[in-house]
C-alpha cells in the first residue's frame, strides 16, 4: 500500500479560469508533505485535484499529467470514483455523517464496495480503523451512538478512521486542524506521524509551525495577484524551506513578512 504522486506540468482550471499553473512535484510514498502559502494561492485547489474532488464544481478540469505511481489518474476512461477510493480525503471541518452511528460512520466507505461481510468481520474493521485513528479507547463503549455527539477533535479522528477503513493509498488532509483546539490538534498531529508508516500523506495547512512539526517535505504556493493563477514557488525538505529557502518569496512568507 501507499503510492507516490507525480504531477507533470499540471494546470487546474475552473471553466476558463486558470486556478493553478504548471505544477511539477514528486511526492514520495510513506511521507508527509505539507502545502503552505497565503489564502487563495491554489494549494487547496491543487490538493483537491489529487483525488479529482475539485470536479464536484461543474467545469473543473486539468491539463498535464498526474501519476499515482505510474498510472495517470486523469487518463481517459479513468473513473473519478475509483480514484477517490484510492486517495482518501479529510476535510477542514469534521464531517461525520450525522444520521449514522460511530460504527456506521467507520463502515460507510467500506459498504460502498457492496462487499457483504459478517458481523465479526465488520467489528474487526471498525476496531482496527478506530485504533488506527487513536479513537478506539474513547468510543469503544458507545459505538452505536451518533457520531455527531463526539467532540470536534474526536469527530475529526472519526473522519480519519472512516478514511483509513477503506485502505487508501494516499490520504489528503485539507487544514484538518483549523477548526480544533490545541489539544485535539496535538492528537491529530501525533496520528499523522503514525499514519505515515503506512500511507502517503499530503496536508494543506495555514499553520507554519504545524507544517514544520509534521512534514518531511514542504511545498510553498503563492499567487502573483488576484485573478492570476497560483503557482508552486518552491518545494524542498521542510527544514530547508523554513531555514534556508532558495526563493525570496518563500523566505518572506516563512519569516512572516506577508501572508
Amino acid at each position: 500500500m501507499s503510492k507516490s504522486i507525480t504531477a507533470k506540468d499540471l494546470n487546474v482550471y475552473y471553466g476558463d479560469f486558470l486556478a493553478v499553473e504548471g505544477v511539477n512535484i514528486e511526492i514520495a510514498a510513506r511521507s508527509v508533505t505539507a502545502f503552505i502559502g497565503p489564502s487563495g494561492c491554489g494549494k487547496t485547489t491543487f490538493l483537491r485535484s489529487l483525488n479529482r474532488m475539485h470536479e464536484v464544481l461543474p467545469g473543473a478540469r486539468v491539463e498535464g499529467q498526474l501519476l499515482l505511481d505510474d498510472d495517470d489518474i486523469y487518463a481517459p476512461g479513468v473513473d473519478p470514483v475509483s480514484v477517490r477510493a484510492m486517495v482518501g480525503m479529510v476535510f477542514q471541518r469534521p464531517n461525520p455523517f450525522p444520521t449514522m452511528s460511530i460504527r456506521e460512520n467507520v463502515l460507510a466507505g467500506y459498504k460502498l464496495n457492496g462487499a457483504r461481510m459478517s458481523r465479526s468481520d465488520a467489528d474487526g474493521i471498525v476496531e482496527s480503523a478506530l485504533r488506527g485513528a487513536n479513537l478506539w479507547n474513547e468510543v469503544k463503549d458507545r459505538l452505536d451512538r451518533p457520531g455527531s455527539g463526539l467532540s470536534g477533535g474526536q469527530q475529526q479522528r472519526l473522519c480519519i478512521a472512516r478514511t483509513v477503513a477503506v485502505k487508501p493509498e494516499v490520504i489528503l488532509m485539507d487544514e484538518p486542524c483549523s477548526a480544533l483546539d490545541p489539544i485535539s490538534t496535538l492528537a491529530i498531529e501525533d496520528l499523522i506521524a503514525e499514519l505515515q508508516q503506512e500511507y502517503t500523506i499530503v496536508i494543506v495547512t495555514h499553520n507554519m509551525q504545524q507544517a514544520a512539526r509534521v512534514s518531511q517535505n514542504t511545498a510553498f504556493f503563492n499567487i502573483a495577484g488576484s485573478g492570476k493563477p497560483g503557482r508552486m514557488i518552491e518545494y524542498a525538505e521542510t527544514s530547508t524551506i523554513f531555514n534556508n529557502p532558495s526563493n525570496q518569496q518563500t523566505e518572506r512568507y516563512v519569516s512572516g513578512k506577508f501572508g
Partner: peptide, 13 residues
C-alpha cells in the same frame, strides 16, 4: 450540507 456530500464522494461514492 456540501460537507456531507463531499464526505461521501471522497470515500469513493
Amino acid at each position: 450540507p456540501k460537507l456531507h456530500e463531499e464526505a461521501a464522494l471522497a470515500l469513493g461514492a
